[in-house]
Write a protein that binds this DNA or RNA. Sequence first.
DNA 1: AAAAAATTTGCAAACGATTGCATTTTATTC
DNA 2: GAATAAAATGCAATCGTTTGCAAATTTTTT
Lengths: 344, 344
Amino acid sequence: MVTLVSETKLTLAKLADIAGVSTSTASRALKDNPLIKQETRSRIQALAKEHNFSINAAASRLRTQKTHVIAVILNLIDNTEQSTTDPFLLKLVGELNQALNAKGYELLLSNSFMASDDWANYFIRSQRADGIIVIGQGKSTAKIDRAAQSGIPIVVWGDAKTEAPYPIIGGDNYLGGYTATQHLLSHGAKRILFLGDSEHAEMQERHKGYAQAHKDANVPIDAQCTCAIDITSKAAYQYINERIKANGLDFDGIVCVSDMVALGALKALKERYVGIPSDVGIVGYDDISLAELMHPSLTTVRQNTQQAAIEMVTQLLNQFENKPTESQVVETTLIARRSTQHSD
Amino acid sequence: MVTLVSETKLTLAKLADIAGVSTSTASRALKDNPLIKQETRSRIQALAKEHNFSINAAASRLRTQKTHVIAVILNLIDNTEQSTTDPFLLKLVGELNQALNAKGYELLLSNSFMASDDWANYFIRSQRADGIIVIGQGKSTAKIDRAAQSGIPIVVWGDAKTEAPYPIIGGDNYLGGYTATQHLLSHGAKRILFLGDSEHAEMQERHKGYAQAHKDANVPIDAQCTCAIDITSKAAYQYINERIKANGLDFDGIVCVSDMVALGALKALKERYVGIPSDVGIVGYDDISLAELMHPSLTTVRQNTQQAAIEMVTQLLNQFENKPTESQVVETTLIARRSTQHSD
DNA sequence: AAAAAATTTGCAAACGATTGCATTTTATTC
DNA sequence: GAATAAAATGCAATCGTTTGCAAATTTTTT
C-alpha cells in the first residue's frame, strides 16, 4: 500500500528547510516560544500540520532528559491470584490515565512481575519514565522502599497512615472499617466476621476500625471472627462454605476487604439459602460497578478514586519541582444498599 | 535523602572507562554480543550490575529507531459510558501486557479521547511506540483506517470477519450469537430478546447468529425482539424495566452482548420477581469474573482473551518483519450456568 | 542619521547509545 | 618463525532535538 508520505523521514531540520528558517527557530516556533515572531510561529505550525510532522520523542527526551511518561506499576501479590483482574485496580489505572493525560503525561503500564526488581534503575535511570506510581503496598514494601531510597519521584496507593519517606495516597481505611462495622452493628448484628488478608497495611487499618466499632458499641469481639484469607472471591467462597459446614451459621454479619471478596461470600451464603440481610448482613469495599447490580445490591465502602488519581499525580509532579509532598487521605464513604438493610 | 549513587550520571562511556574498554565493546558486552570475548562480556555485565547501570532508553531509541513500546488504545465510544470501567476491556489490557512483556515490549496505555486523532503521527512517527493495538472497532473505523493507511504496524481487536487492510483479532461473534441463542431455544425459549448495540461490527455478527439459530430451530423471529441499547448495565436495566412496564413480560429469553448488559437486565428482572431461568433464561457475553458469582450464576460466551492477546502481539510483530498477516478468530465457547438451566 | 535598545533568528555543541569498518591481538598453519 | 586466518576490540559517524550565546535585524531614542 503506497503512502502519501514523502520517501525520506521528515525531521525538524527538513521542516525548517522548507520553511526557510533554522532548526532552532523551527523548534522554538513549534512550542510557541514567544522569542519567535508570532507570524513565523503560526507559519511553521501550519507547515508542520500540513506535512504531518511530529517531533521525534526519542531525540527530544535524550536532549531534555525528560520523558513525560509515568510508569504505573500494579504491585500484585505474587502467590495469590488477585491479579490484573481486580476491577478496582483497573479502575484506578483508568483514572490515573485520565489524570496524567490532563497534565501532559503518558502512562506506561507494568506489573511487579516484570521489569526486574530494581524499579529506579529500570524505569528512571534508564529514562523510560520520569516517575513511578505504585498501586498497592503489597505484603512487603521492600521494592518500594528500595526505589524511594534512590531518590526517584514516586507515589504509592495504599494506607496513608503508614510512615514512609514517600507520599502514600489512600482511603481512610480505619474509618472505612469502622463505618462498615458500625453500620452492621446498628442493624442488629452481634457476631461479625472480618474477611480478608491481614498482612496488608490497608487491611490492618480496617481491622482496627472494625475492632473499635465493637468497643464503642459494647459488643464483645471474638478472634474466631477475624478470618485471614486471600483477597479473591474464590477464597472467600470456599472459606464461607467450609466454615458453615464446620460450625453452622455462627455469624450474622460480614465485613469484607473488597467487593470481590464480598461477592464470593455472598454466593456461598445464597447457595445455602442464608437470608441476606435477614440472617447475615454483608458489607463490601471499593464499590465496583457491579456492587449495585448484585441481588441484593451490595452495601460497600467507596473510595473516591478520581480524587485519588488526581492527588497522586499532583504529589508526583510536586516531586519534580522539589516541592514538599505529603500522604493524603481521600474521601471514603459508606454506600448503604440492600445487603445490609431491608427496603427503605 | 542522600543516595549512594555517584554524583554524576553513569553513562555507557563511563562504565566502559571503569572497565578499561571502549564504549563499543561495553555496548556489545551488555547485549551479550558473541563478537565480544565471553570473559569480557561477563566482566562488564557484572560491573554494570554492581554500579546499577541501565542503558539510556532515549538514546538507544534514537539511535536504533526502535522503541520496544506498543501503544494500546482503548477505542471507546464517545457518547456512551462504556468507558474504562468495562472489566472485559481491562482484562484484555492485562493479557496484552503479559503477552507484550513476554516478547520484550512495553505497554503504553491510551484511550481514544486523547493523543489527537492522528495515531500514526502521534505514536509512530514521533517514535513514541513501534506499533499500535486498538481495542474495539468503535462505531466508525475512520481513525483506524486512517492510521492503517499510512502504513504503520497496527492490529485491532474486533470482528475478524470485517474486510480490512489490517489484521483483526476477535472471537467468533457469529458462532457466539448462534450458540447462545440455540442454547436458550433448546431449553424451551420461544421469544428471545437480543439486547445490545447493533452499530458495532461485532454485535451485527452476533445478531446474524441469533437470527440463524431461530431459522434452524424453526422459531419465528420478531423485530420487536431486537433491542438497540447502549452497552452498559444501566441502559439494560432501564430498558428491561420499561419494556415490562409497557408490555408485560413479553419474552422468555435474553441474549446480551456483554455480561455487563446481562447483569443490568438480571437486576431488573429480579426486582420484578421474574423467575430465572424458569420465566426468562439469560445469556451474557465475555465471561467476566463476576459471571459465575452472580445468583443465579450467569451463562455466558467466553472468548479466549489470553489466546487473543498472544495472537495480537504475534500479528503485530509480524508486521515489523514485513511478514504477511491475517485476521484471526479466537476460541469462543458457551459456558452454561444456572441463568439458563436448573440444577444439573 | 547615527547610536542604543529591543526583537528575531541562527550557530554549534550537547544528550548517550549503536554499528560498519578498520585495526589490533591471538591462534593456526606451513 | 613467518605468513595467514580468526577472534576481539576500538574509531568515529550518526540518530533528531534543544538551548546558551552570538549575530543579525528591526525599532526606538537622541
